[in-house]
Amino acid sequence: MSSDQPPGLDLDRLRGHLDQERPGLVHGPLTGRRIEGGRSNLTYAVSDGTSRWVVRRPPLGHVLATAHDMKREHRVIDALHPTAVPVPRPLLLCEDDAVLGAPFYVMEFVDGTPYRTSPELAAIGPERTRDAVLALVDTLVDLHAVDPAEVGLADFGRPEGFLDRQLRRWGKQLDASRGRELAGIDELHAALGRELPHSPAPAIVHGDYRLDNVLLGEDDRIKAVLDWEMSTLGDPLTDLGLLVMYSQPLELPNSPISTTSSAPGHPDPRELVERYAALSGRDVSAVSWYTAFAWFKLAVILEGIHYRYTLGQTVGAGFDRIGELVPVFIDHGLTTLQEG
Rank of each mutant, 00 (worst) to 15 (best):
R56L: 10
I305A: 08
L211R: 03
L163S: 03
H81M: 01
V106R: 01
E160K: 08
L134N: 13
F109W: 09
P88V: 03
L64A: 14
Q248W: 13
H198C: 06
G157V: 09
L242H: 05
R13M: 04
A65M: 06
F296E: 00
P249W: 10
G179T: 11
V328F: 09
D111M: 02
R308W: 06
Q173Y: 08
D4V: 14
G265M: 08
E127W: 15
E150M: 13
L237C: 00
A203G: 04
E218R: 14
D283F: 11
E218C: 14
S288L: 08
V141K: 05
R178G: 09
T43R: 01
S258T: 12
T66Q: 10
H74N: 05
T232M: 03
I124F: 13
I204A: 01
E36I: 14
D97P: 08
L11A: 04
I257W: 10
H74P: 03
E271I: 15
W295P: 03
L91H: 10
V328M: 12
S247E: 03
P119D: 05
E303L: 04
V110T: 05
G37L: 11
L240F: 05
L279G: 12
P23L: 06
L250I: 09
E251A: 11
S231I: 06
Q248C: 13
P119W: 03
T83Y: 06
V315Q: 14
M70V: 09
P7Q: 10
V99D: 01
L243F: 02
L311T: 13
R56M: 13
R321A: 07
R130C: 14
R56I: 09
D10C: 06
Y309R: 10
A65W: 00
I257P: 06
R15Y: 09
V106D: 02
R15A: 11
D97F: 05
S199Y: 01
N254Y: 10
V54A: 01
G323H: 04
D212L: 07
H144C: 03
K223S: 09
